[in-house]
Design a protein around this nucleic acid. Structure first.
Length: 753
DNA sequence: CTGGGGATGGGGCCC
DNA sequence: TGGGCCCCATCCCCA
């Protein structure tokens, strides 16, 4: 702000001391400056240039400048201060009305469009919205227009204003002056009280919610000249997604470098997954959601993460140090024991460091019961009759299953075991596991002795069989090597020993209960358990429509939605429907170009952290996925899968690839074990430790090689080589350079550091 | 031109 | 509700 003293000083500086204030202003003011400035800003808006805020109104997106909005309305100012993506309640402001309002903000002119058009926003609607948005000048302007037209009353506008306009303006009690329901990405506002929420809208298009208007019915705002102008908001639709780039949304496959963090720091900050608007978009239109949902979401948004535009949300950062997952306080788990019936579930995380078979002591499962309670409460809220019935049945099932579980647990707690074959008293492990209870089957068939994790100090990587702790997975692996050597030396003992992880992955392994007690069972193994009847205990919640079963009722409910004819979560932009809200919001992220996860090395951005984790392997050169057939290594599991298909599509099994490698035909059943080896070992090395995988396919391959190449079997048994290494020994299968180098790499990897 | 590998995007699903 | 994983599809590059 320029004060008189400043002007006097400026006048002095330009050599005109003593000049009066008025004459000074006269001398320096350019009359058209404001108009030109506004014109420039409006031009920039239409091009999306320097726009730093996105306003979502129903299924339309508008880009604008925070400064302009903030200068126009105190209310908008309060929003844009904190948020880069704000979502207006479309009941209060329709897209067409907001277009008119935005035009007014940037031009100072009110374009009411065609007043005879039933769909063109009328002055009454603009007046109401302007009041709602606290655009006081526009309110005054609208009133003047209405008075001039002799229509100073609210023209009915179906579906827009449920409230009556008070001619007295803002102050009238009948006018809606409660805090406007504006959902922002990172709202710092207090949750809107339930009584302040507007009534839930009727489905706008014959029960079809979220669907884009132009695909589900007549467009609410036909392409008038105004709506086709660049000033109009961008209406995202499958066919015009590409247009979004004009408005600055990055929907391209690769985030251009120019848009890398430095480009749009504020926008980037809004890209944090916890701050994304999808849920809010959904909330404002979905009749499936109760006002409570909206309120909860507001609260959730209220507590959302910081605005720090750090490209890596640290808690999820793949490169962040392995922080222990304290799902449960350690004090609650006096006997943290090896993972049990579904250790591989946990090992998804553990396997990252290659120590999945040796449980990371602090990675305790959460208590599903607690979560379930909340879930039940949530879901029983707006339930239809059919759902209630389903819910009721389910609850009964749940109750019964819980009783089963409790009985099993009590059995375990007493130290009794019904499983006669379980010499170690580990028979209840499957029940214990689903509750995260101790389940002691360990390699070597010994109980895992109770211990306090703290007793290991920094040695968080614990070898279950011997209870030794190690500070790193590498050292643990090196230690585990000694165990494996022992086991290999013991030879066939493994076959009948509960410590044997090997056969747990082979189809024949399930003939033995030993497999059941293996702590190395993965998901599919658990499914197999189910197929032989014992999975009922592990996964008591069974789908009534199919044979799938789950450990907890929430997951079952989630699964059951896949059987529904109508998917409950439609995308508000393209109308595509999803069975899970999370999938829908993730999908929405692709519409909005939200890529919160950025690569530190190259700046590439991703919609999911897992993608970034995958991507980072490109930079690190890590290729944890190794083909058990040819030794080829891959940075991504899916590429290994694709690669394995190449092996399997080569015709008769056991043939040779063009470069002389052994070719297996997984599809013909010639080598069924290899399929398991591929699926459970080679393809899931991230879940299983490299070492474990090596020992697994070593044994598995020995079996097939026994049939194919008897000599190789002996080689495998006595030399400890995998089959792709065995064919090196086989004179008929000359080694390739790749195999040799793979061999040396393998040796390097497993040699103690 | 074709096949294979590298890499990415999106959806389904389970936890 | 988000994370993680699996699967499929696709594009690009290269031999």
């Amino acid at each position: 702000m320029i004060i008189k003293g400043d002007l006097d000083r400026m006048a002095e500086e330009i050599g005109h001391p003593g000049i009066g204030l008025k004459s000074m202003l006269d001398a320096m003011e350019v009359p058209s400056h404001a108009r030109h400035l506004l014109l420039q800003l409006n031009t920039q808006r239409t091009k999306g240039f320097l726009c730093d805020v996105i306003i979502v109104v129903q299924n339309a997106l508008f880009r604008a400048h925070k400064n302009i909005l903030a200068a126009s309305s105190l209310y908008l100012k309060s929003l844009v201060v904190h948020d880069n993506l704000i979502n207006l309640d479309h009941e209060m402001v329709s897209p067409g009305v907001f277009r008119v309002i935005l035009d007014y903000i940037y031009t100072g002119r009110l374009n009411e469009g065609d007043p005879t058009s039933p769909t063109e926003p009328n002055i009454g609607a603009v007046l109401a919205a302007a009041s709602y948005l606290q655009l006081l000048d526009l309110v005054t302007l609208c009133k003047k227009k209405l008075k001039r037209n002799g229509k100073y009353h609210l023209r009915p506008n179906p579906g827009f204003l449920p409230y009556k306009i008070d001619p007295s303006g803002m102050g009238g009690r009948r006018f809606r002056i409660s805090p406007p329901v504006i959902h922002s990405v990172v709202s710092t506002h207090r949750p809107i009280p339930l009584e302040d929420l507007p009534p839930l809208p009727l489905p706008p298009h014959g029960g079809e919610i979220h669907a884009p208007a132009h695909t589900q019915g007549p467009p609410p705002y036909p392409p008038t000249k105004a709506s086709l102008s660049p000033q109009s908001g961008l209406r995202l639709a499958p066919t015009d997604r590409n247009c979004s780039s004009v408005y600055g949304l990055d929907l391209s496959k690769k985030s251009p470098q120019s848009q890398h963090p430095s480009g749009h720091p504020h926008l980037i900050s809004s890209l944090h997954p916890e701050e994304e608007p999808e849920g809010e978009l959904d909330q404002s239109t979905s009749p499936l959601l109760s006002p409570n949902d909206g309120s909860r979401k507001m609260e959730a948004a209220h507590h959302a993460g910081s605005l720090t535009p750090h490209p890596f949300p640290l808690p999820n950062h793949p490169l962040a140090p392995h922080l222990p997952h304290l799902h449960r306080s350690q004090g609650q788990e006096p006997y943290p024991c090896p993972p049990s019936p579904e250790p591989m579930e946990d090992s998804r995380e553990q396997g990252r460091d290659g120590s999945s078979i040796y449980r990371w002591v602090k990675n305790e499962p959460s208590n599903p019961e607690d979560e379930d309670e909340e879930d039940e409460e949530d879901d029983s809220g707006g339930m239809g009759e059919q759902d209630k019935e389903r819910h009721h049945q389910h609850m009964n099932h749940h109750k019964n299953s819980e009783e089963k579980l409790n009985m099993s647990e009590r059995g375990y707690d007493r130290g009794t075991c019904d499983d006669a074959e379980d010499e170690n008293g580990t028979g209840s492990e499957e029940t214990g596991s689903s509750e995260g209870r101790p389940s002691p089957p360990v390699p070597g068939g010994r109980y895992h002795m109770p211990y306090e994790p703290e007793s290991f100090g920094d040695n968080l990587y614990v070898c279950i069989p011997c209870d030794k702790g190690f500070p790193s997975s590498e050292q643990l692996n090196a230690h585990v090597e000694t165990h494996n050597e022992e086991e290999l030396n013991n030879g066939s003992e493994l076959d009948n020993n509960s410590s044997k992880p090997t056969n747990a992955h082979g189809p024949t392994s399930f003939n033995s209960t030993s497999g059941l007690h293996s702590p190395f069972l993965d998901n599919k193994s658990a499914q197999n358990l189910h197929s032989i009847g014992l999975g009922e205990i592990i996964r008591p919640y069974r789908c009534s429509s199919c044979d799938k079963s789950y450990k907890d009722p929430a997951t079952l409910r989630q699964h059951e939605k896949t059987h529904w004819l109508t998917r409950p979560y439609p995308c508000s932009i393209c109308g595509k429907k999803f069975t899970q809200r999370g999938t829908m919001t993730r999908h929405m992220r692709s519409h909005l170009g939200l890529k919160p996860f950025a690569c530190d090395a190259c700046g590439m951005r991703f919609t999911r952290q897992y993608r970034l984790t995958e991507h980072m392997r490109i930079h690190s050169g890590e290729k944890p996925y190794e083909c058990q057939v040819c030794g080829g290594k891959f940075a991504q599991q899916r590429n290994l899968i694709s690669h394995m298909k190449m092996h399997s599509s080569g015709g008769a099994g056991g043939g040779l690839t063009p470069d002389g490698k052994l070719k297996m035909d997984f599809s013909e059943g010639i080598y069924p074990l290899s399929k398991y080896a591929a699926e459970h070992l080679g393809l899931k090395q991230e879940k299983t430790s490299d070492l474990f995988a090596a020992s697994q396919h070593l044994l598995a391959d020995a079996k097939v090689m026994e049939s194919l190449y008897p000599l190789s079997k002996l080689a495998a048994e006595h030399l400890g080589l995998t089959h792709n290494k065995m064919d090196i020994l086989n004179p008929s299968l000359p080694p390739t350079s790749q195999q040799l180098s793979a061999e040396s790499r393998t040796i390097d990897r497993y040699s103690p550091s």
